[in-house]
Design a binder for these strands. Structure first.
Length: 505
RNA sequence: GGCGUGUUGGUCAAUCGGUUAAGACGCCUCCCUUUCACGGAGGAAUGACGGGUUCGACUCCCGUACAUGCUACCA
């Protein structure tokens, strides 16, 4: 049987790290087994719908290089791939469940539900459920006479369909990561299957669509584990048990400090991105920073995510997507949650930057430089040279400006004191003389500059070390950057002399 | 509260009953570099706790603790 997996996000906002990792594991598993990877949009909650979120999700997948074989956009053999567009289909299945006695109709209003919860709330039961006990006290097709039910439905009274959870059954499932897990059915509530607006809840939709779309393996976050028995029972009640996908519940990605699920808030608070790409929320008008805009290479981002909760058991940690496809296995996914470590994420990106060809890197860095320069008249050949000189010290694409701005614009001298404090006549003489020597220098390159500098320093009774630091401050503005003569070579004669003159005048 | 899941250095983690308990990030020291990085060499730092099972337990079992998830007509 052909492996088919799916990523089923709800379009409610930015795509979280954990979401991307779920996509990744789906993708790797599918490719590893030569199967299909499906994108299905779970937009059954009309209240939470956010304009643009679906497109954003697809853009993120594209950026990461994890494109689905079937999706709302691409289509496929099981169209439509948007649950809102599949709405009519779910009702039949809900009715089938009612007819076979596995589900029932409930008329309770939100107020009545709340009243029930308030009434039965105890210290040892802080959250009463709509379950095998309380359903006998509520207004539903189990407690009301058939005629009354028919009448209420006839009159258009809003109702939901709930699953009728059995009592005292043990529901077990085998999770690819965790092994066998079992639940006591008496402790699971009668989940709503079909909402009053006719839309299915996740519980019904996920089962129906996984069945219809012939999904063989279903991967999702650990937060779904508690409702897994509902899904297993539904597969059974629909008569599809032998087609039920194999489950794998992925561990959570935790916040770096303290404990708990990593949230967008943590990123804002700790200064790192949580979403894959910038997310503009049309409701609040706020933009949340993404890994892409923060200066991550998609390959590095994906590599880092692969290693967060999964490990191949070898010492190597840098893998291309293709390599990951080869060695990935669900059994090697960790059971426990992993705290996100932004320093390590930056390390991955640094590694990828070092391994990227300078010409390719220059193209990637260009927008960041142009943005800082305003309308930059920067040529790519120069940028390529600069990138080669400073890539060592860049962890993010955004670091290139910080580390190399002085190649493109005359820097502000921030550490003038370093020069001034040890300034003397000899140095004054050296730099003024050197300026005129540089004017005459025909071979403007690193070695010629260095030779010229050394020679004159000796003549002036100075050591090389006496002039190097002042020269660096003149050219760079601070105590950092690659070799000074390499810098001078790139910025050219005119600019070099200008910067020396600016300080020595 | 109930139920589920989890727990190896600060973090990510290897180990699948026998090891001096890998490796990486971060941190510290030194070297290289007349800057900052990169790189190189070292270093500190780990099996939550208590019981079993076993010749032997990080590994298997049971408790305890802690953490986390869920307990919506949200996913």
């Amino acid at each position: 049987m052909k492996v088919r997996v799916r990523f089923a996000p709800s379009p409610t906002g930015g795509l979280h790290l954990g979401g991307v990792r779920t996509v990744l594991y789906n993708y790797l598993f599918a490719r590893h087994h030569g199967g299909d990877f499906v994108l299905r949009i779970e937009d059954t909650d009309q209240n939470r719908f956010v304009e643009g979120a679906e497109q954003y999700i697809m853009d993120c997948l594209k950026w990461c290089g994890l494109e689905p074989d079937e999706s709302p956009l691409k289509g496929g053999p099981y169209t439509p791939y948007r649950q809102s567009e599949r709405k009519p289909l779910y009702k039949d299945y809900a009715e089938q469940l009612i007819d076979s006695g596995y589900a029932y109709i409930a008329f309770d209003t939100p107020e009545e539900l709340e009243k029930m919860r308030a009434e039965y709330r105890r210290d040892d039961n802080t959250n009463p459920q709509y379950d095998h006990f309380t359903r006998g006290l509520m207004r539903n097709s189990l407690t009301l006479p058939a005629e009354t039910v028919a009448e209420l439905v006839e009159k258009g009274t809003p109702y939901v369909v709930r699953i009728k959870m059995p009592e005292n059954e043990t529901v077990t499932l085998t999770d690819m990561i965790r092994g066998e897990i079992s639940f006591d059915s008496s402790l699971v509530d009668d989940k709503v299957l079909l909402k009053a607006d006719g839309m299915p809840t996740y519980h019904l939709a996920v089962v129906v669509d996984d069945y219809l779309m012939k999904i063989t393996h279903a991967f999702r976050g650990e937060e779904w584990l508690p409702s897994a028995p509902v899904h297993v029972l539904l597969w059974q009640y629909m008569g599809w048990k032998e087609h039920m996908p194999q489950w794998a519940h992925l561990p959570l990605i935790l916040k770096p400090d303290g404990n708990g699920k990593l949230s967008k808030r943590d990123g804002d608070r700790l200064g790192f991105p949580v979403f894959a790409m910038n997310w503009f929320d049309p409701k609040t008008g706020e933009t949340t920073k993404g890994f892409r805009e923060m200066g991550f290479l998609p390959q590095a981002f994906v590599n880092m995510l692969a290693m967060l909760g999964w490990n191949p058991g070898v010492e190597k940690e840098l893998f291309s997507l293709d390599e990951l496809v080869q060695i990935f296995s669900m059994e090697r996914v960790h059971k426990g949650g992993a705290k996100f470590n932004f320093e390590k994420a930056k390390w991955f990106n640094h590694q990828y930057i070092q391994h990227t060809d300078n010409a390719v890197l220059a193209e990637m860095v260009k927008p960041y430089i142009v943005k800082e320069l305003g309308d930059g008249n920067m040529e790519i050949g120069k940028l390529e040279k600069v990138v080669g000189l400073i890539k060592d010290r860049c962890h993010l694409l955004t670091d290139f400006w910080e580390q190399g701005h002085f190649f493109f614009a005359t820097p502000e001298i921030k550490e003038l004191a370093v020069i001034k404090d040890k300034w003397n006549d000899q140095k004054q003489q050296f730099f003024t003389t050197w300026q005129s020597k540089l004017e005459l220098l025909t071979d403007w390159n690193h070695d010629a500059l260095e030779a010229s500098c050394n020679e004159l320093a000796v003549e002036c009774g100075l050591k090389k070390g006496d002039v190097m630091l002042p020269l660096r401050i003149m050219l760079v503005g601070g105590k950092y950057g690659p070799g000074v003569f390499a810098i001078a070579e790139v910025i050219g004669k005119e600019e070099t002399i200008k910067r020396i003159k600016f300080v020595t005048r």
